[in-house]
Design a protein around this nucleic acid. Structure first.
Lengths: 214, 214
DNA sequence: CACGAAACGGAGAGAAGTTCTCCGTTTCGT
DNA sequence: ACGAAACGGAGAACTTCTCTCCGTTTCGTG
């Protein structure tokens, strides 16, 4: 999906143990980033993957490259979820709801920081994925709004930030059971998004740019 | 409020510059913890407070003690906010709403992690403050529920976790403008909390213990 | 099955960043 | 104006992470 990782540049088709380890590392990195944030020691990731640290460095030149791969992968999955929700659900609000809960399952909240710290904003693949995601989520929201089920005073940024925040590991609890709360709280939030609005919101609708550019 | 900080143990009444610096350090620590989390270098806090690092160590034996003081202070303030909301607001849901937004202003989300990392759970002062907070917030919610304005399927933990999560610094954005979103999203969440419930929630109501004990 | 190429793991050197103390200087209060 | 108290900066000691080196193991093929 994402970047040109070290191993992918190779001419030869790589040994099976090499590719297996590579995937283990990516999976371990994903978990570790979710639990401990983007600065988690690379040695810890290697250990978690059950490989030596040298193996990690053999596959990924540095932390940046590893983050890039993990983040690209997650972004792509998220976009796919949005697209399938849009395509498969008949009810507009239900489509939105489905996307939100799938996004939670992808742990975007925890992985979101990676999108900033490890992302080359100029990478065309990333730009593409990002624009695609914005486009499809906007469509999800527009549909819900037009069907009269979504209150009109919220923007895509409101939704994305709320998803991000509500799906992050709960501070201090070693991330043990966010899953227990996550979906409940997103559901409550979604109930607050329904039309007719039950209160007046302060501020203005949050757009994508509001939090992209720091 | 909270702990027996080093300076407070002193017999003598301390010089004015000493107490001034002490407060500067606490304020700087609060800000720094909010922005960079509980592991922010102590030297950075000292610098931010405009004092030498030795001065910080003179007032607080270690990071743990500093965190304890800051967290105790915040917890006390939060409880006060809840109590005044309960006492002064006539409408039950409005009281709850007021508490939520005041809690956001106190930046509990960002400071919450301190409650875990730096807290001596056996400290009687802390226990007291905690129980007091739980008691008054429970009362706020009970009142709102009894008045028929709060959906019955949510617990105090649902509220506290959501406040915590929604008021944390947004990942990757250097914490610049959480304030812009925070109140909007809490408001949306509160709208979702109103009775009648607009959907069925998964799981069960979250209690205080669910996230206290890891 | 045996051989060469490729990959692996552990240990530790090197780099970076944090903590915390020492001590000469400044400020406060009487 | 004097002594006690507090201050600040510099740097030593320590911790932590990164990343390489090299002997060993695994894979794939002839």
């Amino acid at each position: 999906m994402g970047g040109m990782a070290t191993a992918e540049r190779r001419a030869q088709p790589a040994r099976v143990d090499a590719t297996r380890n590579r995937e283990r590392i990516i999976a371990a990195a994903r978990e570790a980033f979710v639990e401990h944030g983007p600065t988690v020691p690379l040695d810890a990731i290697a250990h978690r993957a059950g490989v030596g640290n040298a193996t990690l460095y053999r596959h990924f030149a540095d932390r940046h490259e590893l983050i890039h791969v993990v983040a690209s992968y997650s972004l792509a999955r998220l976009t796919e979820q949005a697209e399938s929700a849009l395509a498969e659900e008949t009810d507009a609000f239900e489509a939105l709801r489905r996307f939100v809960h799938r996004a939670a399952d992808e742990r975007v909240g925890a992985l979101c920081s990676l999108l900033y710290e490890g992302f080359d904003k100029n990478d065309p693949h990333v730009m593409d994925a990002r624009i695609r995601l914005e486009k499809v989520v906007t469509e999800l929201m527009d549909n819900a709004r037009e069907s009269g089920q979504l209150r009109p005073d919220v923007g895509i940024g409101d939704l994305m930030v709320a998803i991000t925040q509500l799906t992050r590991p709960v501070a201090g609890t070693a991330c043990a059971h966010v899953e227990r709360f996550m979906h409940r709280h997103l559901q409550l939030f979604l109930d607050g998004l329904r039309a007719p609005a039950r209160s007046e919101l302060c501020g203005t609708a949050v757009t994508f740019e509001d939090f992209e550019i720091k």
